[in-house]
Amino acid sequence: MSEELLARLSALEAENANLRASQVQPNATSICRVAIKLPPFWPDRANVWFAQAEAQFLLAGITTDETKYSHILSKIDHQIAGEIEDIVANPPAQDKYKNLKNTLVKRFSSSEEQRLRKLLSEEELGDRKPSQFLRHLKSLAGPTFTDDNILRQLWLRRLPQHVQGILAAQADLGLERIADIAD
């Protein structure tokens, strides 16, 4: 019985060696299809959407400009495509992806003035938790708005009166901690 097993093992090793020899060599050029899953483009959060897309590219090992450009273009609906028709109809010879990304971000991101207007007057708590609302306000404020005291006041004013009363006594705590209490 052991001779039979040894013979079978030897045959399997020979078959395995043949398979390895017939495979594509590591230095040889090959084309593999890589599937990635991108959500539809988010015009109101283009930077966040591109961060997700680039994470997908990294995971899939996609590095070529043309492939990135094609994946992004495939997720653009007809209305968005109409807004960037100049880029779609006549893409640059080089840096297609970078050009497409910059154009989409520039054309669809809110201006700083629009974000600040929403921050100062338009945004309401709605059905969000207070900590979610605070993160949203911080997102609207962007990196240029660094005064936590003003943000704290804007946030507190939009919370229900009974919550404002409770949080008023917590002035010495940080904003994130107060948001946790508010939740």
Rank of each mutant, 00 (worst) to 15 (best):
G142V: 09
H162K: 04
A93V: 11
K129W: 02
S139H: 13
V163C: 08
R115I: 08
S74H: 09
F145A: 11
G165S: 12
R135P: 00
H71G: 03
Q161T: 07
S139M: 05
K101Y: 02
L156F: 10
E124P: 01
G142S: 02
G142Q: 04
A141R: 00
R152E: 15
L116S: 06
Y97R: 02
P91V: 06
A93G: 07
R107V: 11
D172A: 07
F108M: 06
H162Q: 08
R152S: 12
P92F: 15
K118G: 12
E122K: 01
D77L: 06
N99E: 13
L173Q: 12
S110R: 13
S74E: 01
Q170S: 07
L156Q: 09
L173F: 07
P143F: 12
S111K: 12
Q94V: 09
T67E: 12
Q79R: 08
R152P: 05
N99F: 13
Q170N: 08
Q170R: 09
S139G: 13
E85T: 00
D65N: 05
P92R: 04
S109W: 00
D172T: 13
A141K: 01
N102V: 06
P130V: 14
I76Y: 11
P160Y: 00
R115K: 11
Q94R: 15
L125F: 06
P92A: 03
T67A: 09
E176F: 08
K68V: 09
D147T: 10
E66T: 12
H78N: 10
K129Q: 04
L134Q: 03
L154M: 07
R107E: 09
A171T: 03
I76L: 15
E113F: 15
E123S: 14
A89E: 15
R117V: 03
P143C: 06
E113M: 14
I62A: 08
D86F: 10
R107P: 02
A168W: 01
R128V: 00
H71W: 15
I84N: 06
G174H: 05
K129G: 00
G142C: 07
L120Y: 15
E122I: 04
Q114G: 01
A81Y: 08
L116K: 11
W155A: 06
T64L: 11
E123C: 12
D86I: 03
V163K: 01
S70Q: 10
K106H: 15
D147Q: 14
Q170H: 08
T144H: 14
F108K: 01
E122R: 00
A93K: 14
Q79P: 03
S70R: 07
D148M: 11
V88I: 12
P143Q: 03
S109N: 05
I166E: 01
L151Y: 09
Q161D: 13
V88T: 02
Q79A: 07
A168D: 04
P130H: 03
F145T: 09
K68F: 05
E123H: 07
S109F: 03
T67L: 13
S109D: 00
S139E: 13
E112M: 04
I72Y: 05
H78V: 11
G174K: 02
D147R: 09
L104R: 14
H162F: 05
Q164C: 01
S121A: 05
Q153K: 10
N99I: 11
H71S: 03
K101W: 06
P130S: 01
D77K: 02
D172Y: 04
L173T: 02
H71N: 12
D172E: 06
E83S: 13
L100H: 11
L159P: 07
R135E: 02
F108S: 02
L134I: 04
S111P: 07
